[in-house]
Design a protein around this nucleic acid. Sequence first.
RNA 1: GCGAAAGUGGCGGAAUUGGCAGACGCGCUGGACUUAGGAUCCAGUCCGCAUAAAGCGGUUGGGGGUUCGACUCCCCCCUUUCGCACCA
Length: 833
Amino acid sequence: MKYEPKIIEDKWQKIWEEKKTFAARPDKNRQKYYILEMFPYPSGRIHMGHVRNYAIGDVIARYKWRKGFNVLHPMGWDSFGLPAENAAIKHKIHPTKWTEENISYMRAQLKSLGLSYDWDREIFTCREDYYKWCQWFFLKFYEKGLAYQKEALVNWCESCKTVLANEQVEDGRCWRCETEVIQKEMKQWFFKITHYAEELLSELENLKGWPERVLTMQRNWIGKSYGAEIIFPVSDKNFSITVFTTRQDTIFGATFMSIAPENPIVRELIKGTEYEKPVTEFVENVRKENKILRTDATREKEGIFTGRYCINPMTGWKMPIFAANFVLMDYGTGAVMAVPAHDQRDFEFAKKIGLPVKVVIQPPGVELNAESLESAYTEEGVLVNSKEFSGMKNTEAMEALVSYFQKNGIGRKVVNYRLKDWGISRQRYWGVPIPIIYCDSCGVVPVPEADLPVRLPMNLQFDNIGDSPLKGCDEFVNTTCPKCRKKAKREVDTMDTFVDSSWYFSRYCSPQSKTSPLEKEELNYWMPVDQYIGGIEHAVLHLLYARFFTKVIRDLGFLNRGEPFTNLLTQGMVIKDGAKMSKSKGNIVDPDDLIKKYGSDTVRLFCLFASPPERDLDWSDEGVEGAFRFLCRVWRLLDEEEKNFSHNSPFSGIKDLTGQETISEDAKTLLKRCHKTIKKVSDDIEQRFHFNTAIASIMELVNALYLIDKNDFKKDDSLRSVYFFSVETVLLLLSPFAPHICEELGQRLGKAGTIFEQPWPGYDEKMLIDEEITIVIQINGKMRSKISVPAQAPEEEIKQITINNEKVKDLLKNKKIIKSILVPKRLINLVVK
RNA sequence: GCGAAAGUGGCGGAAUUGGCAGACGCGCUGGACUUAGGAUCCAGUCCGCAUAAAGCGGUUGGGGGUUCGACUCCCCCCUUUCGCACCA
C-alpha cells in the first residue's frame, strides 16, 4: 500500500474537527498549559514563516497534551489594518469582504496543516464582538487618566494625506509614493504607557523565560537614566529654562545652552527682537527635515544664537542660548546645558562657533588642557575648577551636587525615561473607532458604555486615500451629545491595530463572553501564557504593549498578575538563497504547492528538522524531499506485516525486561535503543525545543529497524515482539511532528484508540544502562584506542586493561606514565613522558 | 560608534556539565535489485600522506593562554547578522 498523504491527512483532519479533539475546558484538577503563537494578519495566504511558527507551537501543544496537561491552544486573526484598506481602493472591494475572504482561505490552509487548535475560540479583531471591547478598554483607560489627547509631531505624507507608522517610512520617504515624510503637529490620542515605565522595566528581571536579546531591546527602549533637572534663569526675562542632565558633575563647565528648535521657549526668547526672523527661519528649516535625517549622529551640528543669555546657577556666568538641531524636543526637557569639554556634541558645536571650552573633570594622571583638547573627555575623573566640589571624584560629586541643588532650589534629582506615551490615533478607516464625541457645549465626551460598540460604517466609498475616511461619512460623524443631547460630532480617527493585539491572548480565555471583555475566573485559570512563540520583529512593539495592557487589566481587577507571557520563543526567519523569502526577491515557496505534493506532515517535519527554532531556517527543496523520504521509510516499516496484526490491541505502555528471561541479545539491544530514544526525544522537546535532534534520533531508531532481518523472527519470537514495540514507539514519538501518518499507521498496526489519546511514552532508567561500555584511551590527550569493559568495572581494572592493551604497550615503549585520568564511563587519559 | 548573537565538511546542522569533533539529513561515490532507475535497499563519504590493510599527520574564522584534555573557559584580532545610535 502506497503512502498517500493527501488521503490520510484529509481523513484525520476530518476526525479531529468532528470530534473537537483539541477543545479546551478549564479543569481545576488538571494542570493547565497555555501555548500560543502570534496570530496572523490575514494578508491572503499563509507563508513559510507562518508554517514554521505554527509547526513549532503544534509540537509543544501535542507533547504537553500527551504529558497530561490541560492545553489551551487557540488561533485567531489580527484583522484590522492598512492592507485591507489599500486593497479596497485598488480593487474596489470592501475591506470587510477582502478580509473575510482571506480569513476563510487561510483558515483552510491552517486546517490542511493539521494544527491542534481549539477552533471554537477563534477571534477576529475586526468583528464587532471583539472591537467593542477595545472601545470598552479605551473608556476605562480614559476614566483612569491613561488615555488623553494632545498635540504631537507625527510622520506625515503630504501626497497621501495620512499619518504613517514608523515602519512605513523608508529612508525618510513614504513607502507608497516616495514623497519625503515630514513632521506634522496633530491632535492625537495617547495611552499613558509611561505610567508603567518603572514596572515595565523592573519586571523584565523576572522574565527568566525570555531571550536576553528581547529583554535588552526592551530595556533600551524604556531607556531609564538617572540625573538632575537644573534651573537656569534667563537674563532680562522673568522666566527660567530647566534642563535635564545625567552629568550634573560637569555643571561648572557649562558655558552655553542649547535648546530644541521645536521648544516653545524659543519663540518667547526671540519675540520682538532682531533675532526673531533668522531664528524662526532656522527653526522652520530644521522642522521640515525628516526624523531619520534629524537624528543621524553623524549629522553636522548646527545652531543659531537667540540673542538671549541664561545664568549658570553655580558659576554665575552668562551663557548664550542657542537653538540647535541636535537637541531633541521629546527627550528630557528639550533643553540642555552645554559642557563642551565633556560632551562630544557640545564640543563639536563649540569649536565650530568658537565658544569657550572649560575643563572641569581631570582624568587620573593626565592634565587636560582646554586649548589642546581634540575631543570631549567623557570618562570619569576628579572635579577641578568647581569651587568647593573641586577634588571630589565625579561619581561622588553627582550626589553632592544634587543635594546642593535641592537645598538651594536650583534643581532636583530626577529619573528620566526614553519611553514615550503611545500615540494610538490613526487617520484610517479599517480599525477600531475611538469612542469619543466632541460637543460644542460639553467638550470631549466619552461614549457611554451602554452605547458600545461604536460601529464602523459599512457604506463608505473607497476611491481615494484621504485623511480619516470616516470624516466624509456624515451618518457616522453626526450624532448627539450623550450629556446635553445637542448635536455633536464623533472622533473620526481609529485606533492603532497594536491596541487590538495587546489583549487578544486574554480574550482567548473566554472568547464568547457577551457581558464582559474577560471572565475573571477563566482568565485566572489560563493566564499567563506558558509559552508564546513569534518573530523577533515584535521584540519591542507588540510585546511591550501587551505587557502594558496586561498590567492595566490587572489593575482593573481582572487578573492577579501583570505579566502575560512566562516563556517566549522567538523563531528565526525562513531564508532561501541567502535572503528572507519575499515577493521582491522572487524566492517564495508556497506552502500550498508543497502540501499538495508531499503532504503537511512532510512540510512540518522539514521545518522542524532543518534547524533549531530560534535560528534562521535555510530552505532546501532537497531537504523537503529528504523529509518525505523518511516518512516513506516509516510507512514501509509495517507494509507487508499488516495482515499479521490483531485488531484493537492496546498500546503497549512501558516495555521493560521484567519477566522476559527468554529475550534474545538482539531483541534486548533493540529494546534498550527504544528506551534511549524515548529519553532523548522527551528531553529534546521538554528542555530545549531542539526538535531537529529529536527527529534525528527517531531517524536513527528507524535506521536500526531497517537493519533487522525479519527472517530472524521465525526463530526469535522476542525479536519480533520488540520490533513491533519499536515501530509503535516510533509512531508515539514521531506523532507531535508528523501527526497524520502516525495516527494512520497506529490504526493499521491494529491499535485501539488514537495516538493522541495515548500518554507520552515513559522510559525505564534501568534500560538506559549498558552492561558493556566503550572507554576511549587517550595518550597525552590524543585518542589512541578504544576498549570495551563491563560498566561496573572498577578504576584499577580499567587501568590494568589499558596498560595491557597491545597498542598501548607499543606506544608506551621507552615512556613513563606520569599520571592517569579516568573519566567514568567515558575515557582514560595517560600522561606519559 | 555602542551592544548582542553567530562563525564547525561540498550544504543544513550535531556534540546538553571541559572528555571519541562532524550525530541526523542533503549532496556525492560505489554496489544490490531491475527491461530501466531520477524508485528502493546496502555500503562509503572532514582534509592530506600512505594504502593490500593497519596506520600517520592535520582540522571547529585567525593568533595567544588556562588545562592531563578546549568547538566548549579566558585575552587579542577578523568576518557576518541583528538591535541601538546626537537620549544630554
